Amino acid sequence: MADDQRLWGYPEVAAHLGISVGATRSRKSRGSLPSPDDDSVPDRPRWKPSTFQNWRPVGRGFRSDLHRTTRAEDAQAN
């Protein structure tokens, strides 16, 4: 496998996301990470770095659960 295709384990994913390895494992168990590119070894999933290029973690950035209602919804409520 070429160096640019080196697979990331939990430590590399954690470093990329800026969170702990424990938090990374927790996100994986909750389904908050992309599916592993290689899960051939039990409890040692691996991801290609490119898998995380356009992926955005759940819970970061825009909070859709806190979004403001639209003006039409506001008008109906009054």
Rank of each mutant, 00 (worst) to 15 (best):
P36A: 02
S32C: 14
L66H: 10
H16S: 03
G18V: 07
K28L: 10
L17I: 05
D38G: 06
N54A: 12
F62H: 09
L7Y: 09
S64K: 15
H16A: 10
F52G: 06
D38R: 00
S29E: 10
T24W: 00
D38F: 07
G9M: 00
W47T: 00
S40R: 13
Y10I: 15
G22S: 13
W55L: 13
D65G: 13
R44L: 07
V41D: 02
S20N: 03
R27M: 04
P45C: 01
G18E: 06
S50F: 03
H16T: 08
D39T: 11
D39A: 12
Y10L: 08
D65R: 12
V41F: 08
V21W: 01
S64M: 14
S35T: 15
G9I: 00
R6L: 14
V13T: 03
S40N: 12
T51W: 00
D4M: 05
E12M: 06
S29L: 05
V41C: 08
G22I: 06
T70Y: 14
P36C: 01
A23I: 04
P49E: 03
L33Y: 00
T24M: 03
L7P: 15
R46W: 01
P34C: 03
T69D: 13
Q5Y: 13
V41I: 13
R46D: 03
P45G: 01
R25D: 05
W8I: 04
S35I: 15
L66R: 13
W8A: 05
S26M: 14
R63F: 03
S32M: 14
L7E: 08
W8P: 08
S26A: 12
F62W: 08
P34N: 11
I19W: 00
K48G: 06
R44G: 06
R30M: 09
D43R: 15
W8H: 02
A23K: 04
K28Q: 14
H16G: 03
N54T: 08
D37L: 05
G22T: 11
R56H: 13
T70K: 13
